[in-house]
């Protein structure tokens, strides 16, 4: 019998965190609760934003425009599969040390991810749509420059 597959936290874990913290957990139905409904809204906005954010960070914001989407997808699938291999990464201690957090921050600090989301819900939603559609890699990779241009040039 080989070693059992050890659970870990790969870079997709943000999705788990979002789902766990926004969809699950005890909900109090009582008049002592401040604004129950707003959490749902927060969840929707966040999902939209995170979907685009994660897509961007997963692809490293480094792909030149015109990158073959299928190749990227295949690569990301392979990465997922790799997280299964028994040996590596028994990061079991619930220490809450999210390796990907730093990585993600680094990405977001330098890129236009924030900038593109600044416009409010409308923007976030359309962000997500484009992230789900075709050609998002080129969009993603352009984000850095594009956003700067937008903000400087008065995108209002």
């Amino acid at each position: 019998m080989p070693d059992p597959v050890r659970p870990g936290r790969d870079s997709d874990s943000l999705a788990d965190v979002v789902e766990l913290l926004l969809d699950k957990g005890v909900v109090i139905n009582a008049d002592i609760v401040v604004s129950v409904g707003e959490t749902e809204l927060l969840g929707i906005k966040l999902r939209a934003a995170i979907a685009s954010f994660e897509t961007a960070s997963e692809y490293g914001l480094e792909f030149p425009s015109g990158t073959d989407m299928e190749a990227v997808e295949a690569a990301s699938d392979r990465r997922r599969e790799r997280s299964v291999t028994p040996a590596a990464n028994p990061e079991l201690s619930p220490s809450g040390d999210f390796a990907e957090r730093d990585e993600a921050s680094a990405v977001s600090d330098g890129d236009g991810g924030d900038g593109t989301n600044d416009g409010g819900d409308g923007d976030q939603r359309s962000d997500r749509e484009s992230a789900n559609g075709d050609g998002d890699v080129s969009e993603t990779s352009k984000e850095g420059e594009a956003t700067e241009a937008e903000t400087d040039g008065g995108g209002e």
Binding site: D12, N29, A30
Partner: peptide
Amino acid sequence: ASVRYTGPWPPYTFAPDACAPTGEDGP
């Protein structure tokens, strides 16, 4: 098949669904 196995997480999914109000303590 590719498998993703993550955790340990606090048991958000297994927390009791909803809990009762406090009774009328008033805010």
